[in-house]
């Protein structure tokens, strides 16, 4: 069986678990537990190890989706998941500027570990106070518009939006493979 692994990473509450649940054909294997400390103000449960989802294409090919924990501190699971990935998506919550710094840290961590095609998915762009994509990019330290990865809007609860973001990521890969 040929497997394609995509890592979904980002801040706490950015929508990683929802993203995988929305598109997975199986019940997502989730390692959520009741959130403690400040995470609890955002959501009741948080991923502590990983989320896992699957999409079977045919008898020979399958897509695996791995969601990382979104804790502010480095987590050993980040490294384990990203090293297994063929590509990844960083989800950033556009209406929580207080999380951009941590988003930058996750993004830079992944970039320091692997050299893979990736995209940035902006979630909650319809919420009050959501920042424009260009300003989020600058907050993540991406100054050069022409050299930055694609930044797209994602509704993690909408299957067509999630599928479109995956297609965008795959197109990156196909361009790299040409």
């Amino acid at each position: 069986m040929e497997a394609f692994n995509i890592a979904i990473t980002g801040n706490v509450g950015a929508g990683k678990t929802s993203f995988i649940k929305t598109i997975s054909e199986i019940e997502v294997v989730s390692t959520e537990k009741k959130a403690s400390d400040e995470v609890n103000q955002l959501k009741h449960n948080t991923t502590v190890a990983l989320d896992f989802g699957r999409l079977t294409l045919n008898a020979e090919q399958v897509l695996y989706l791995y969601g990382t924990p979104g804790q502010n501190r480095f987590d050993f699971m980040w490294e384990i998941i990203i090293e297994k990935a063929h590509a990844y998506i960083v989800l950033i919550d556009a209406h929580r500027p207080q999380d951009f710094y941590n988003g930058r840290r996750i993004f830079n961590f992944m970039q320091s570990k692997v050299n893979l095609p990736m995209i940035i998915g902006l979630t909650h762009t319809d919420c009050e106070g959501a920042w424009e994509a260009d300003d989020v990019a600058l907050a993540l330290g991406l100054k050069n518009r022409r050299r930055r990865p694609p930044i797209i809007t994602v509704n993690a609860s909408d299957s067509s939006s999630v599928a479109n973001s995956l297609i965008c990521l795959l197109e990156q890969l196909m361009m790299a493979n040409v």
Binding site: A85, H86, R147, I167, M174, A176
Partner: peptide
């Protein structure tokens, strides 16, 4: 980032190359 965009072979420490058939099928499936 600039280097990654010009990288012609996609691979990770533990994963090999991805076939174009898989990528194409995946896009069609989605």
């Amino acid at each position: 980032l600039a280097l990654s965009s010009t990288n012609s072979m996609v691979k990770t420490k533990s994963q090999g190359k991805v076939s174009n058939s898989l990528l194409g099928n995946l896009v069609d499936f989605l």
